[in-house]
């Protein structure tokens, strides 16, 4: 589902990030469109994490540009990034297992009567919003008072995604959302991502190791190896073998087969 006529929501141009003498990113260019799932694939240490940390404001790039909706933007902190609408869902999901769904959904941004941190919470309203927002991307929660610790991994992922979207994420960065989950829950998360994609106005950057998952939902791929983009394209252009080859950092799987033989 490509939207060729629209402009990219977020774009990087020749992004370079150096940690001392180590070059983590060496000129990465990337375009992500609304309503698209953009899979970011690559081996461990390829620079995926550095890239998303640059996009979510944790790291400041050494050189290169980040454009959000065509405007050049500089992030000094994760807060800056989330203010322009970049929501990152990290692997640990930033959830407190001991408190309820609603309290997690609104953590740090609670709705309340009156100003100041001693404002009384609008619990009912927050319950309703939490249930509604999670239902929008496909998970029905019966009891918003349920502690997050009693939810399944997939439900937790949905909660974190719904929260990011509700608080204005236009670009959703998902860091390995399917790792550490069971087979069934992985499918659940993929369905959730599909639902977000269908909302149409949100660009999703999906970091994954799993080629099968990428093939199932991604519209566009970017492969990163040793800090550089070694290939990209839409799902139509790429064959399964290409993907597998590029994921392994460009090495021919055939070569590996020979070596193993």
């Amino acid at each position: 589902m490509t939207v060729p006529n629209s402009n990219p929501l977020i774009e990087t141009k020749e992004l370079v990030k150096k940690f001392g003498s180590f070059t983590a990113l060496n000129g990465v260019s990337l375009k992500v469109y609304p309503g698209e799932v953009h899979a970011l694939l690559g081996d461990n240490g390829a620079g995926k994490s550095t890239l998303i940390k640059a996009l979510s404001g944790v790291h400041q790039p050494t050189s290169g540009k980040i454009l959000v909706e065509g405007k050049e933007t500089k992030f000094n902190s994760p807060r800056d990034a989330s203010e322009v609408g970049i929501g990152t869902v990290y692997q640990d999901l930033a959830l407190n297992s001991l408190t309820s769904v609603t309290r997690n959904f609104f953590l740090g941004r609670e709705l309340k009567f009156g100003n100041g941190p001693f404002g009384i919470l609008k619990m009912k309203k927050m319950h309703n919003i939490a249930i509604e927002e999670m239902a929008k991307i496909g998970i029905k929660i019966e009891d918003p008072e349920q502690p997050v610790g009693t939810m399944s991994g997939g439900q937790r992922q949905t909660l974190a995604i719904a929260r990011a979207i509700y608080f204005g994420a236009k670009v959703l960065i998902l860091d390995e959302p399917t790792s550490a989950l069971g087979q069934k829950q992985q499918m659940e998360v993929l369905k959730t991502i599909k639902k977000v994609q269908q909302l149409g106005n949100i660009a999703i950057i999906l970091i994954t190791h799993n080629e099968i998952h990428a093939r199932l939902i991604a519209d566009r791929y970017t492969f990163i190896s040793l800090g550089e983009v070694i290939g990209s394209g839409s799902s139509k252009d790429l064959e399964g073998d290409d993907i597998r080859r590029l994921m392994a950092g460009g090495a021919e799987v055939g070569d590996l087969a020979k070596e193993l033989a």
Partner: peptide, 16 residues
């Protein structure tokens, strides 16, 4: 109150 939620989350999962 909001502070209450902050207290719980500070102790429950600091990084979150």
């Amino acid at each position: 109150t909001q502070v209450g939620n902050w207290i719980y989350s500070t102790g429950g999962n600091l990084s979150a």
